[in-house]
Structures are given as C-alpha cells and as structure tokens.
Simulated scan of single mutants.
Amino acid sequence: MRRALLIALAAVGLMAAEPAAAPDRPLADAGQEARARALFADIRCVVCQHESIADSPAGIAGDMRRLVREEIAAGQTDPAIRADLVRRYGDFILFQPPVRPGTWLLWFGPAGLVLLAGAGLALAARRRRPDPVPLTGEEEDRLAALLATEAFRPDPDASRPNPGHEAGPII
C-alpha cells in the first residue's frame, strides 16, 4: 500500500515538473542576434530570479528569449523591448531597473543603511563612560588594610598569566 502511494506521488511530481524549454533558434542576421544576446544578459528570469534569461534553463526564459528575438526581427528598438517586458513583468525583470520614486528604496536603500549604521556607530563612540570617581582617603585606607591582611588571598585555582615571570601575587 505504501509503495503504491509513493509511486503515485512520484508520478504526480514528475508530471508537475516544468517541461524543457524548446531549443533556441538564433536570428539569421548576426547583428540582430548580437543585440538579442546583449538584451538576454540584462533581463532577469522570473523563475530563477538570480539568472539572466541567457543562462536560465527554465521554460519561461526560453519563451522570453523567443519573444525578444521576435520583437528584434519585427524592428523594435532595445528600449521598446525593455519597456514591453517591464509592462508585462514589472521593474523586477531588469537587472538594472530605472531610477524613479518607486525604485528609490532599491537603489538608495543599501547606501542609506550603511549611512544609518555609520551614524549609529559614531553616536556610540561619542558617548563616553563617566570618569570613575576617585577613592576617598577613608576608602583607600580600608583597601590597603584589606590587601595587607591574610584573609585576602588570590584564587588558588587561578594560574599566572605568564608562568615564567615571577611577579607579585595575582589579585
């Protein structure tokens, strides 16, 4: 029973897998194909998200490559092709989205975080710990008396910081 269930689940998983992308058909004109390949490097795969459509094995990346080639063959300019892809998929589709109010956080957010962290570090460095209050004469006398008595001994389990150096008692 379990074996049949596992086989059924594996079969469903294999059927749900994305089909392989159709093989690319380069454009006949070498100049147009060079333009297409340059555009492929600037366009993000919506499935892989960290790869360009030139490097992605996803089926949708193959569809996007075919779309770009079709638009180049139809005479579209590179900015028009990018604008069409942004219209379909949003600014995220471009590895270098345009600078406009909707993308300011994307462009300036990291620099703002660095500046904010630097300001925080500068403020923390400017805060000084208060100077310690010196001991009064009475406190100094009491400390000297404590140090002179035999009731005050160093920890017997403590080791010397430098075993070869014979210094006074470790306090």
Rank of each mutant, 00 (worst) to 15 (best):
M64S: 04
E71F: 01
A148S: 06
F152D: 03
R87V: 09
F40Q: 01
P110S: 05
F108I: 09
R142K: 13
V86H: 01
P97M: 05
V114E: 04
C48E: 12
D55A: 15
R65M: 06
A151H: 14
F92D: 08
M64Q: 09
P163H: 11
A111E: 10
I53L: 02
I171V: 13
I72E: 03
G168H: 07
Y89V: 00
D42L: 12
E139H: 06
A30Q: 10
A73K: 05
M1K: 13
E166D: 14
I170V: 14
D141G: 15
C45Q: 02
P154N: 07
G120D: 05
A17M: 15
L5T: 11
P110N: 03
D91V: 11
R65T: 05
A145Q: 12
R100S: 05
R65P: 06
F92L: 07
E70Q: 11
L147H: 09
E51V: 04
A167G: 15
P26Y: 07
A124N: 14
P134S: 05
R100Y: 08
R129L: 14
P169C: 00
P97R: 03
N162W: 09
A117N: 04
R2A: 03
A148K: 02
G120A: 15
R37N: 10
R37F: 09
L5G: 07
R66F: 05
H50L: 12
D155G: 06
L27N: 07
L146M: 10
A21K: 08
I60K: 12
D91Y: 13
A36Q: 02
A73E: 07
D141E: 15
H165K: 10
R126S: 10
A34P: 02
D155N: 15
A125E: 13
P130E: 15
A151N: 15
F40A: 04
P79T: 05
L123I: 10
P19I: 07
D29I: 06
P57H: 11
I60M: 14
R82E: 06
P98V: 03
S159Y: 02
I81T: 01
A21H: 04
E140W: 15
R87G: 13
G13Q: 12
V46T: 15
A36F: 02
R100N: 12
G109E: 00
P101Y: 02
A148Q: 08
A54E: 11
A34I: 06
Q49S: 08
L9F: 06
V133F: 01
D29R: 11
V46F: 08
G75Y: 02
Q32E: 10
T77P: 00
P154A: 11
V114H: 01
I170N: 11
G109Q: 03
R3I: 14
Y89R: 00
Q96F: 13
A122D: 08
R88Q: 12
L106I: 03
S52I: 03
Q76E: 09
I72N: 01
A34V: 08
A124M: 12
R2P: 01
N162C: 08
G109D: 01
A16D: 05
A158V: 03
R126E: 11
L39I: 10
A145N: 10
I43T: 12
R87S: 15
E18P: 03
R100F: 06
R25W: 08
G62Y: 04
L27H: 09
A122P: 04
G31T: 08
T77G: 04
I53S: 00
D42S: 12
R153Y: 13
E166A: 13
E33A: 03
N162E: 09
F108Y: 13
